[in-house]
């Protein structure tokens, strides 16, 4: 395994390329959810550069780690990292939300190499991760199951059912990541339905809860390493993020939850991202 500095350098490059891909993808498709992709980008970049054991030549190999994008609407971020890691051809970027091709509007494990389960109906990913982790335990492998959850997604009751399951079975191989950008479709999370003491809730559900800045690559790395080393039960990274991170006019703007940049906005965003 590379050392931390090399991984962080790779993750920084990957995150930058991912952000550019996300902007181009949503612009060309005329749709998608750029805000929640850009908030999740740094987390996904560090995860894939430093932790995920996957093989683009054999995406379904039996000993792979799993990544479940439970907040399926952020799939451009997943496609972007899969392009960076060689699962997808970067030229497929034009296929996002297209009638044909391998990049549907929400994740499909049937269509896209590197995608392990379909998502898009919120709330299901953590349960899937628990099942995969229990199976891996039976199989005697050390596979890990990572799940990215949206903060608004935590309104779904199933997530809390699955939190109890992971704690009950002490699933140390499960690591949940909450993209806590505090904005959702109808407005701010606190206006729609507050999550209150989120860390305390996970903690009292029997999880090891780590609160981090979801854009500080070093902090993300340390938290993922700590989660991997923790053997007693599941870990959640509550990652404070900024919706639209990296594009000035998208940052913190609820309108960019589900909206495509037009030609001018796309050009402006790409310029900003080149200057990073």
């Amino acid at each position: 395994m590379d050392n931390k500095e090399q991984i962080l350098a790779a993750a920084a490059r990957t995150a930058k390329n991912m952000r550019r891909s996300i902007i181009r993808m949503t612009h060309m498709a005329g749709g998608g959810h750029p805000g929640g992709c850009l908030s999740a980008t740094d987390l996904i970049a560090v995860l894939y550069e430093g932790f995920m054991r996957v093989d683009p030549q054999n995406p379904r190999r039996r000993d792979r780690d799993f990544f479940f994008l439970s907040k399926g609407h952020a799939v451009p971020a997943l496609y972007a990292v899969l392009m960076e890691k060689g699962f997808l051809d970067p030229r497929e970027i034009t296929d996002f939300r297209a009638k044909t091709g391998r990049l549907p509007a929400y994740p499909s494990c049937e269509l896209t190499p590197g995608v392990d389960i379909a998502s898009g109906s919120l709330g299901q990913g953590l349960s899937v991760a628990n099942g995969a982790a229990l199976a891996a335990r039976l199989n005697g492998t050390d596979q890990r199951a990572y799940v990215m959850l949206g903060d608004g997604e935590l309104h779904e009751g199933q997530v809390w059912e699955a939190m109890m399951t992971a704690a009950h079975y002490r699933l140390a191989s499960v690591c949940a990541i909450v993209d806590y950008n505090k904005l959702q479709l109808d407005g701010s999370l606190d206006e729609v339905k507050t999550l209150g003491d989120l860390r305390g809730k996970w903690d009292r559900f029997g999880w090891r809860a780590l609160e981090i800045n979801g854009h500080e690559l070093s902090e993300i790395y340390d938290a993922l390493a700590e989660a991997r080393a923790w053997r007693e039960g599941p870990t959640v990274l509550i990652a404070h993020t900024i919706k639209g991170k990296g594009v000035s006019f998208m940052e913190g703007e609820v309108g960019w939850h589900a909206a495509a940049p037009n030609d001018r906005e796309c050009a402006l965003a790409l310029k900003e991202l080149s200057d990073l």
Partner: peptide
């Protein structure tokens, strides 16, 4: 007993957990 899992009264959870088992090669 090692291959039996009680998910409690949580039918949404049990369904998607089954998907995870299958994904990792089991027949749930």
């Amino acid at each position: 007993p090692d291959r039996f899992f009680d998910l409690g009264i949580a039918e949404s959870d049990i369904m998607a957990t089954g998907a995870g088992f299958a994904l990792a090669g089991k027949i749930p």
